[in-house]
Nucleic acid binder design. Sequence first.
DNA 1: TTGAAAGCGCTAACAA
DNA 2: TTGTTAGCGCTTTCAA
Lengths: 340, 340
Amino acid sequence: MRKTNIKELAKILNFSVATVSKALRDSHEISEQTKKKVLEAAKEFNYTPNPYASSLRRKRSKTIAVILPEVADNFFSLAINGIQSIAEKKGYHVLIYLSHENFVIEQSFVEDCRSGRVDGLLISVTSETQNGAHIQKLLDEKLPVVFFDRELESIAAPKVITNDYECGFNSARLLLERGCQNIRFFSVSSDLAICSKRAEGFLAALAEAGLPNENAICYFSANDTHTHEHIKEVIANRGTVDGIVASVERLAIQTYLACHELGVQIPDELKVVAFSTVETAPILNPSLTTITQPAFEIGKNAADILFTLMEGKDYGYTKKPVIIPSVLVERKSTQNKTGA
Amino acid sequence: MRKTNIKELAKILNFSVATVSKALRDSHEISEQTKKKVLEAAKEFNYTPNPYASSLRRKRSKTIAVILPEVADNFFSLAINGIQSIAEKKGYHVLIYLSHENFVIEQSFVEDCRSGRVDGLLISVTSETQNGAHIQKLLDEKLPVVFFDRELESIAAPKVITNDYECGFNSARLLLERGCQNIRFFSVSSDLAICSKRAEGFLAALAEAGLPNENAICYFSANDTHTHEHIKEVIANRGTVDGIVASVERLAIQTYLACHELGVQIPDELKVVAFSTVETAPILNPSLTTITQPAFEIGKNAADILFTLMEGKDYGYTKKPVIIPSVLVERKSTQNKTGA
DNA sequence: TTGAAAGCGCTAACAA
DNA sequence: TTGTTAGCGCTTTCAA
């Protein structure tokens, strides 16, 4: 059946378009009887409102954008679910952009958000992103932006993150307590706040234990197709290294794969802790000790704040990021044979 | 800096809006000199075209929708990447809708696509979806739709899937070859073609081996929060069952988790094959034998076909789905101690 | 090669 | 309570 627009509907009903429009939006200035007639006709004649006409007129798109590096990562998948759970409630659409850890792509997506296509933006930046000028531009134009997880310290916008420093600290502490003497932190970027803060905490724990080590942080570029080989190399030539903290999910998986390929025994020869939300952590070989980020909650909170902002309310942002703590779950990858 | 619209830009340049519009779209009827001036001014005065005004006028949105059950599943994550790889090339935006395996949600998303918001739809239906009337409606209104993975047999639209029947057959065969006597197929739905075809193949292999079994298919509703308990129950009370085929990723992970919790030894007590694209398959305990679907390729192909359709070309759709075969990778979860 | 004008479908101020 | 009218920002005839 053909679709109808508001004009045709008005003609059919012998009302003006204005009346029909108001009736459809359930305006109080329209009589119940008219509303009923309009709604019925709308259904009968297969009326579908054109969202673009409405957006153009109202200067609101009922759409938010989410820019993130990757979706094939459980953290981001869960975060998207959290975001959608809120967007759905508000009747908003979600436009998802994947930057693939590429700064240039991220820039062009952010640029695109300036067009009025979206009413707000949630972003987790790439590991390459050092500069926030593109995002500042949005902010200057009064488009609400909220960071989640991977934020930019130089930009003054709401942020929802986890307790990175503390978790970095605890991860190193755990390894040291389990007897490790020479540990490494696998990072994807020195610029990403989440990585640098986790690394800082990690280094602080080393320092506290009297084991400072300037070479403890290893970098693996996030969009390098040879990460696997690089990790394998590092592990193969690890010397006395006996413990690793993987700062993101992908590095954790790569580390495990490398160890399997090289026949390196976890945890006997090498202990591993990972920042990760992989569901399979308990069934990995060996089960993986994780620092599990509250991914869904982070997404949900970020979206909540974004909507508060979009509704013109000041949500009481005080320059301090919202911090939702992660949970350390110890499994076999850090345990000694004796059980601890 | 403030944004400019085309009217303001025209005034600044002392051209008409028409000229500016044409220059911006690189029309052949505008002189090079004028184009250059316009482009420069556009940059200088921070011009950003309003996509909604453009969409309204041109009746094209430069946006496609992807409706899928879930994103926290590696198959769908990879498929999204495949879709985006094409959309990006075409300068299209991708609106992602998660139906969470809920038919009512799916329906409302599909309904929403009728509004002109998108120029085409890629869909993988929920496990609840039995009826395709909502999708037929779009087709009737000439909106291009392409199914990927989870299709609806009753709807005549292009489909990109994998060789489900064959893979179902091979999965059962493998288990039987490894000595299993009593095997089960874990399904999420009897309506989903992917599941029923995989199950058919599975049953055919059983019949061929002279082991027909009407109770070989076990159903676990996809949006049941108690799947884990149900699977655990089935495995605990498995009797002589010695082999399982998990038809989707989530069931595979749940099966492993259940076995771990129950102390059931894979592969000694129970062999497991899974339709899955999980990266962690080789590092699971034990490593998981998988039928790996070409998820990225499926997404990519589906998007390719959708764009062909949207460009008004008939891509030569002949009622036959495009089939991209999966790859069976045997790992420890189906091997006997002796190595085979 | 450029411009005037109409209009995509809808909303909102104002009038009736 | 309903209707008239003027756009939102852009594209596209058609005329100059």
